[in-house]
Design a protein around this nucleic acid. Sequence first.
DNA 1: TCCAAAAGATTGAACGTTCAACTAATTCTA
DNA 2: TAGAATTAGTTGAACGTTCAATCTTTTGGA
Lengths: 152, 152
Amino acid sequence: MSDEAPWLDDAEMEAWLAVIGLVMRLPAALDDQLRREAGLSHFEYGVLASLERAEDRTMRMSDLAYLCNGSLSRLSHVARRLEEAGLIERFQCPTDGRSTLAKLTEPGLHRLVEAAPGHVRLVRELVFDELDEGEVAEFGALARRLVDRIKT
Amino acid sequence: MSDEAPWLDDAEMEAWLAVIGLVMRLPAALDDQLRREAGLSHFEYGVLASLERAEDRTMRMSDLAYLCNGSLSRLSHVARRLEEAGLIERFQCPTDGRSTLAKLTEPGLHRLVEAAPGHVRLVRELVFDELDEGEVAEFGALARRLVDRIKT
DNA sequence: TCCAAAAGATTGAACGTTCAACTAATTCTA
DNA sequence: TAGAATTAGTTGAACGTTCAATCTTTTGGA
């Protein structure tokens, strides 16, 4: 453990507080809208949306958890609830008995399609109405570099 | 409710997934480090750090909640635990009987000072070692605009 | 001035996430 | 190829957050 840990200077602190504000408030804002209007958490929405984009609307639990930025344990609990609600189904992977595959059901797809417009509207309001095309690209590229660094 | 809600195009989606990745993984990474090394959640750390910077190390609960990007209810529960641990104390505001003031105690300050180096080290690793000065300013400014829009 | 409405804060219950323990299947290695 | 180690996933308990209800104090209007 290096003892090089200089405190943040003013410019860094200002940027850092903005970033912290964003990472704490954005998920909360998305959660609120989705819960009120669609009865889904943002994480649940992410699970359904990820499956929808996947080959055969099916993914391994591990890969899904990674893609949804959550732990496997978290996904496992959420998947149980989504399965009970009939929005997804789970079954063992035929090629690797350790793996579970999750698949979006028709009702799950309908639920996603119902929820999407309101969600996208908020995302536009909060992000894409504020930034122009170039800023979006810039912001996305910087965020991507930070995410990749966190993932290690 | 307008029916103008065009789906995200490829560039927008790419940026959006990066932003979502950041807002979901960064708090988790900060939480992990702080819990392991200092026995504090990131939110608790933020409460202590905010009080440390405040006039007389004291703030109204409402203002503190706002500054810490959390609900008043969340802060209230956390404050009870921090008070039980002796890290803060609470008392009624002398000028407005509705308000509660929270104040950082000496043990609370020591706990913060203990936790800070490890936390700052991680923040540097994840963010400030990746971005140069200009990128930090840019990223901070963009994040600030989005946060302000969320707050409304 | 009196009463209704609003603001500040707390509380308990419901819900969701994390953590650690566990099971089962596969891969590695001696 | 047997046994150890690793990988994938689930589960229950502990913990933290949210939600709605409640309480108190202050503010605003008739």
